[in-house]
Write a protein that binds this DNA or RNA. Sequence first.
RNA 1: GUGGAUGUAGUUCAGUUGGCUAGAGCGCCAGAUUGUGGCUCUGGAGGUCGUGGGUUCAAGCCCCAUCAUCCACCCCA
Length: 416
Amino acid sequence: MIQAPKGTYDVLPEDSYKWQYLERILRDTAKTFGYREIRFPMFEHTELFIRGVGDTTDVVQKEMYTFTDKGGRSISLRPEGTASVVRAMIEHGGFNGALPVKCYYIAPNFRYEKPQAGRYRQHNQFGVECFGAKSPSANAEVISLADTFLKRLGIRDITAHINSIGCPNCRPKYYEALKAYFEQYKDQLCPTCLERLDRNPMRLLDCKSPVCSEIAKDAPRTIDYLCDDCKTDFDETLKLLSRMGVDYQIDSGIVRGLDYYTGPVFEFIASGIGAQGTVCGGGRYDGLVEQLGGKPTPALGFGSGMERLLLVMEQLGVPIPGAETIDVYVATTGKDAGDAAQKLILELRRMGISAERDLCDRSLKAQMKYADKIGARYTMVIGDDELAAGTANLKNMQTGEQIPCVLSAATIEAVL
RNA sequence: GUGGAUGUAGUUCAGUUGGCUAGAGCGCCAGAUUGUGGCUCUGGAGGUCGUGGGUUCAAGCCCCAUCAUCCACCCCA
């Protein structure tokens, strides 16, 4: 049997309404904040991610689906959205018009990872990017957007964890202090942390091994090493968040794994959906546009994993509206009723009323059972008697009440 | 990439220390004086026991390999 590739999954017809609902809330929220949708390809030149995401990151080093196409180009399936957005904006001169440019996307990402709870090889992400605004109010707006859609989805008890990892000016001093601190404990650190000490020291703050995390507790914190600009930017951002009613906590362990982040970074972390609890993560990346060949442009954004959002909602028991049902099921019996039913449902459908009839030549009883299972709101039985009389009963499947009704789409519509 | 757990009908699972034609609930299909769903009852369809080897008179059960799923590490959304 051929099954879906590892780390992928199917959304079946009985569940797709959940995705449609989620997407609707996300789009509506983005819209109310003045963000417009951007769409971009599912694959890009590998070079884009190497330069954009960073060639030291795990995402680029070992998780990309990279292949050579028939033209000899190195192509990669998109592992994250931001690099593509920036590329598209630079390519089309998006930063030459009115700033800020604010856009969002809903798109799948691909990473060759080992699947587990809340982690897939193809996952869908809702992402938001804001270009050309350096102000704390831009920071606050983006975080507030995330906070807003989470609330609108009914996801409570999730707070924003915020940190600032500093700009290129303050980072070197911090790195020095950080390295000096961890060097003292070199003999106690886990093997992966030892490696991180050289490659990406900030990741040490994030280690979950008991020994390392104990050591990390007293490590120098980025926020104590911020330059004046970064510090006022951070403080101002927090002030605005409080004013906007966004619950947050400062968390010096938030460091992010993509190279392009600078300044404030944040994650919304859920408990109860397994080890992969980050439901939304992002921050400022002021250097990325220039890095990819555009003119220096301040920017920030976030990505939010939609599978995880759905997991959290399920875990919280948040009701998801919109399960699909059918308005009218027309059951038939006898030889001539089929044609009449066909005509009727065609008219109903033209009016935008969803209508179905038997397609399997089944008994009346079986048709009624089917109507019940698909959640038909009303059923109508047409047989020889009804054809002769020109009327039939429209049955409310919830109450069982039957309403006599002329055999015309217009009268049925009136009853509904 | 590392570690742990698990693979038996569509699905959730039983299946004694290896021993007859492999079971149940739910779901599906069909019936219960032949024109009306939900509740109940009856019957039916549906399984290469993940796959390939091995041990044995005999393997769903034991051994090896392999694949897949789940969970954790790592990493990230």
